[in-house]
Amino acid sequence: MRKHFYLITEHPNEDRVGQIEVTSQRKTPSSKNEETACHKMRFDEERESIEDRFTQMNVSIGYYDFEDEDGYQEQASDVVQSKLEEIDEEHLRKAGLDPEEVFADA
């Protein structure tokens, strides 16, 4: 069960910056440790205008093959931590993360 991980570095909702987005399929185009734009649309019942579209900036932090859903639930946090340790400090800072704290857990 492959999961792809992305660090959100820019988002219209500042609360989302610094979070990890997990997908079952790779976002295209995306390369590990490179920031890419991801165009999204808000999905809600009142969506009626183009203003519901936005751009989110992500940094791919790689993927991991979990054995199954239980393995994902048990290991995801550790996998994300190890993946973040492989990312350039500039991306971590842009996402509001302190590189010293990220690398301290290594």
Rank of each mutant, 00 (worst) to 15 (best):
3 K>H: 06
5 F>R: 00
7 L>C: 05
8 I>K: 00
9 T>W: 01
10 E>D: 09
12 P>I: 01
16 R>K: 11
16 R>V: 12
17 V>H: 00
17 V>A: 00
17 V>Y: 00
19 Q>W: 00
20 I>V: 15
21 E>S: 02
22 V>L: 03
26 R>N: 03
26 R>A: 06
28 T>E: 06
30 S>W: 00
31 S>F: 03
33 N>E: 04
33 N>L: 07
33 N>H: 04
37 A>T: 08
37 A>F: 02
39 H>D: 07
40 K>G: 09
40 K>Y: 02
42 R>D: 05
43 F>N: 09
44 D>S: 11
44 D>I: 09
45 E>M: 12
47 R>S: 10
48 E>L: 10
48 E>A: 12
49 S>F: 08
49 S>E: 12
50 I>N: 08
50 I>W: 03
51 E>S: 12
51 E>Q: 09
51 E>L: 10
53 R>M: 13
54 F>N: 08
56 Q>Y: 02
56 Q>D: 04
57 M>W: 07
59 V>C: 11
61 I>Y: 03
62 G>L: 03
63 Y>C: 13
65 D>H: 09
65 D>P: 02
66 F>V: 14
71 G>I: 12
72 Y>A: 04
73 Q>L: 13
73 Q>M: 10
73 Q>N: 12
74 E>C: 04
74 E>V: 07
74 E>W: 02
75 Q>V: 11
75 Q>E: 15
76 A>H: 08
76 A>E: 07
77 S>F: 10
77 S>W: 08
78 D>Q: 12
78 D>F: 07
79 V>I: 15
80 V>Q: 01
81 Q>E: 14
82 S>C: 13
84 L>R: 07
86 E>N: 13
87 I>C: 00
89 E>Q: 14
90 E>T: 14
90 E>S: 11
92 L>Q: 07
93 R>V: 15
95 A>V: 05
95 A>Y: 03
99 P>L: 06
100 E>F: 02
100 E>D: 13
100 E>R: 11
103 F>K: 14
103 F>Q: 11
104 A>E: 10
